[in-house]
Amino acid sequence: MVLIVTTGFLILPVSGDSTSNTIQAASNVYVSNYTIDPAVLFTGDTATATFYVTNGNANQSVMVNHATFGDNDIQLTSGTYDTSSNIGPLQTRSFVFSIETDKNAGTYYPSFSLSFSAGNGMYYRTPVKVDNSPLVMAVADKPDAFTQGVKETISVQISNPRDNDIKNVIFEATGNDVTLTPSKTYIGYLASGTSTMVNFTVIPDTPTSLFMHVDYDNGDNPHTVNTTLPIPFTTDKQQADPVMSNIVVALNNGTYDVTGDLTNAGLSTANGVTVTSLSPAVPQDPDRNYVIGALKPDDFGSFEVTFKVPEGTTSVPMQQSYKDSDGNVITSVQNIDLTQATTQTASQSGMLPALAVVIIIVLGVGGYLYMKKRKNQ
């Protein structure tokens, strides 16, 4: 009994010194770093919070038995750390938590707490920012007018006004009766305070609207922004504008011969200008269609087209076409009145060669008589 009591008294001071040393060692434990991903949340977002705890004691390990993070504003959605574990001398251990918030925009200060086996603990308040500013999508450049079947280029700027970076950014444009190239563009990473430009071409078949979407991830949280761009058909004030004038229609043995001038009254060059007749006209040689070529602004060229029509036809549509600088083919149609045609009969056309022969004979006889008279003299 004496031995046991004596041993007990010897152990107690040693136990007290051990506890004191453990508490002293725990005082050298600190949060050396932390991350919140994403760094800024939208209302309703989830995030991953990671805390790096370092034991600054070079000689003694520290036992921890509980770690958690959060408060009434920032809720913890993952479990807490409730298993005892050691942090060795000069070692660092990470504690990872999943959190979420339903709070409005603002900055909140939840606490990270860590309990030690020695009975004491530490608390570390961390700012968590909530901001509901989305990405900004704006049309940076588009044509003054859209025309059926004409390819145009549209430029869209996508900006990130947030204080954190965004990932997996994808731009997509859709619409009815329209061809889009490309219709989807992967942008990927967009840093805070930066912007990027997306270019795509559009060929509308009818007046329509483009629906443009930007999908992106804030951390692992998907978000999207949308906008609509109307595509009406209007006249391009800068395009070429070939105009027919000085039209003359002649009828010869059932074949119509149409001549005239084509003047570019627009502000752009018309390339590959061509004139041809449309149904019910049936193009005939020698001028089934007429190629004028390039017409600069205020320039003109003459054309001649021949064709036949069914009996009783009083007008024929005449088509003029050209290519713009992008290679788009632009056409327009003007009706030609056939009732005003001048008629040239076969007999009249046959008299011309005979008259030419008579003139040649007269000149030849006259020349012969003149030379004979000179010789006799």
Rank of each mutant, 00 (worst) to 15 (best):
V333N: 15
P297W: 03
Y368L: 10
A294P: 07
I292Y: 01
Q348G: 12
Q320M: 13
V309E: 06
N252S: 13
V333D: 11
V248I: 11
Q340S: 15
A240F: 07
V357T: 15
A265L: 07
P310D: 05
T339F: 15
T314A: 13
K372G: 08
V275K: 01
Q284T: 10
G301H: 00
I361T: 13
T313N: 06
N246E: 05
N328K: 09
S245A: 11
E311K: 12
V273Y: 00
D298M: 13
P317T: 10
A250R: 11
F307S: 05
L251M: 08
G367Y: 03
K323V: 04
M351W: 15
K373E: 06
D241K: 02
P353N: 01
V358F: 14
V357N: 07
I247R: 00
V305D: 00
L267E: 07
Y368A: 08
L262C: 15
A341H: 06
S347C: 10
T306R: 05
T276G: 03
N289A: 01
P242K: 08
S325V: 10
T345V: 04
N271M: 04
D326K: 12
L355S: 02
F307M: 09
I361M: 09
M244H: 12
L363S: 05
M371I: 12
T339Q: 03
L262I: 14
Q319Y: 07
S277R: 01
